[in-house]
Design a protein around this nucleic acid. Structure first.
Lengths: 215, 215
DNA sequence: CGATTTTTGTACCATGTCGTATAAAATCCT
DNA sequence: AGGATTTTATACGACATGGTACAAAAATCG
């Protein structure tokens, strides 16, 4: 996961870099970039300041690494649930179900989307964050557009439909869930957003009407 | 606007409370709550620390006042553009056009929605922000739902349409514009989101197809 | 074992931050 | 003018913050 390999000589690391990065990410996720101190991260990872520095290179670099990890994980999930051999509406149901589980974990408090919850605020002042967030959202929308275009070609949705517009709406619904989950809106109401999106965007395609929930 | 009146005696204020509140709001808007220091606010308002304190009562209280002001302004705008005597699709065009002008001012850099850009991050840790943001978003969605319900009753949209679902999608499009504007997405692409929403949600009602842009 | 290498842990520094104490300034009232 | 009242301006205090220096610790290699 993390490229830095363990050296042959010298004192061994007292931490697991991947685990530490996840824990640091969780702190940023909860408190935001500006709201998180290196002491918070030290406490969450069990690492002292110089180790944090050697491993990740300062607060900003650490945040960007956490951002990138989250982005990659999201991307992998999307590629799985939007595979073109899964029916469109079923794929979208999985898409939103996976997102919902991330935004409102079964155990633990609601946290929303890491990128939206922490990146949007910083984007105005931090060019790195602005670019990373912009690229990440663009990727999501593009993946949806590709899927809708395939669905159009396959006759899953109307031949007159506009894949780009549908992707915009589908991603918008995701962002709405990301935002509202963090305000304490209950799972059921968030699920209703997903349902509304699927109902609105897959008007024709009703090969699968079963509600998908994770076990 | 601000309830605190000028007293009859004593040294007169050197600042205009409403103007100061707007300037403070703009700093929070740009840097977020945690990313803003009282020195930043002092510089932006021209007020020194004790005056800020006396006028607004500390950083958090000042932020909440700014939030409330923004929320009220948004609410007024929404009530105007979604008045039931304006055709639905025209009203929505105004709705998104107004939002766009707020998110990407004609002069000055893109900033998105104050509530989403600054509130989502803090919502996880700050119960006041969480409630204010949740209430504000709920208000927006409710106003849209009421308008869609009226449109349904008036035959502007299909009798089988679901006003609540339509409101969810319409608000989601707004939030998407709010987020993406802050990542630097150009006006044209943001307008495309609005167009996609209107196209998707007002499928039947095409009394007005003219693009609305502010002068 | 002793030299080498890498990480750890403590302490530290310079700066930033929130909030307040206190005295001077500017107005009104009599 | 003189007292009363309110705001301003400076300064400050206690603490938090990001980042670093440095010696001790723990491993490998010869």
């Amino acid at each position: 996961m993390v490229q830095k390999s363990v050296p042959k000589r010298g004192r061994p690391r007292a931490y697991d870099p991947d685990k530490a990065l996840r824990n640091a990410r969780d702190v940023f996720w909860e408190r935001g970039f500006s709201g998180t101190s290196l002491d918070d991260i030290g406490a969450a990872t069990g690492m002292n300041r110089p180790s944090l520095y050697a491993a990740f290179g300062g607060k900003h670099a650490l945040y960007m690494k956490a951002f990138d990890t989250y982005r990659r994980t999201s991307r992998r999930m999307i590629d799985v649930v939007l595979a073109p051999d899964i029916p469109l509406s079923e794929g979208l149901q999985h898409f939103y179900a996976e997102a919902l589980d991330t935004y409102v974990p079964k155990h633990g408090k609601a946290r929303g989307c890491f990128m939206i919850a922490t990146g949007v605020t910083e984007a105005a002042q931090d060019a790195d964050v602005r670019k990373a967030l912009g690229d990440a959202l663009h990727d999501i929308e593009k993946a949806l557009e590709v899927r809708f275009a395939a669905a159009k070609k396959a006759g899953e949705i109307s031949a007159s439909s506009n894949p780009r517009a549908l992707a915009m709406m589908a991603s918008a619904a995701l962002y709405s869930m990301a935002i509202q989950s963090r305000t304490g809106v209950p799972r059921k109401a968030l699920q209703a957003i997903a349902d509304a999106a699927i109902e609105t965007l897959c008007a024709g395609s009703n090969k699968s009407r079963t509600r998908i929930t994770t076990p």
